[in-house]
């Protein structure tokens, strides 16, 4: 126990302030959507992640959102296990044909209001794999997509900027709660 406490004391707080969301990014993500989330989700967003065929690069970066540098949960964003609990569906990968039905069913299991975020180049536009005998291509070929976060894979900053912009959380409203960066 002492070793653990010593380690915690030595490392301190690594968490950083969130990235700035500039006006252009907000514009791109759709102002209308922000209003809807603000009104409907009250600054809190429960996300269900579905890998619909990615190379797993996007998953690694979504995982990184939970590390102490980003600590995405402090902004009210949580990743939930059941689509029944989710406000948003975060989809990675091109939609492989073998995942098509599972993805549709996950989306159907979510209660309205709900929206879909496509994360990564493949989810946004088909990316490296595109459409083929085995792949439907971009997520929007299968589900209505509300927000796109490009990148191969999108970095945690890109993901956060996309999500935070969607939530209209910016530096001024959260800087008091996140403490000093290490």
């Amino acid at each position: 126990m002492l070793r653990i406490l010593h380690q915690l004391w030595r490392v301190g707080v690594a968490t950083e302030p969130p990235p700035a969301t500039d006006a252009a990014a907000l514009e791109a993500l759709g102002l209308e959507l922000h209003r809807a989330i603000e009104a409907r989700f009250r600054h809190s967003l429960a996300i269900r992640v579905v890998d619909a065929g990615s190379c797993n690069g996007c998953e690694l970066e979504i995982h990184a959102l939970a590390n102490p540098y980003y600590d995405i949960e402090r902004f009210g964003v949580s990743f939930v296990a059941s689509p029944r609990h989710a406000d948003a569906l975060l989809v990675t990968g091109p939609v492989s044909r073998h995942m098509e039905t599972a993805l549709r069913r996950t989306w159907r299991a979510m209660s309205a209001p709900k929206f879909v975020i496509a994360a990564g180049q493949c989810a946004c536009g088909g990316g490296e794999f595109g459409g083929s005998y085995a792949s439907c291509g971009a997520v929007e070929k299968v589900l209505p997509v509300d927000v796109k976060i490009p990148g191969c894979p999108p970095s945690p900053e890109d993901l956060m900027r996309g999500l935070l912009a969607a939530l209209r959380v910016d530096e001024t409203t959260v800087s008091e709660s996140c403490g000093e960066s290490a």
Partner: peptide, 11 residues
Amino acid sequence: LGYTHKGIEAL
């Protein structure tokens, strides 16, 4: 398995 099969060998 096979759910993420996207035809890499064909691509």
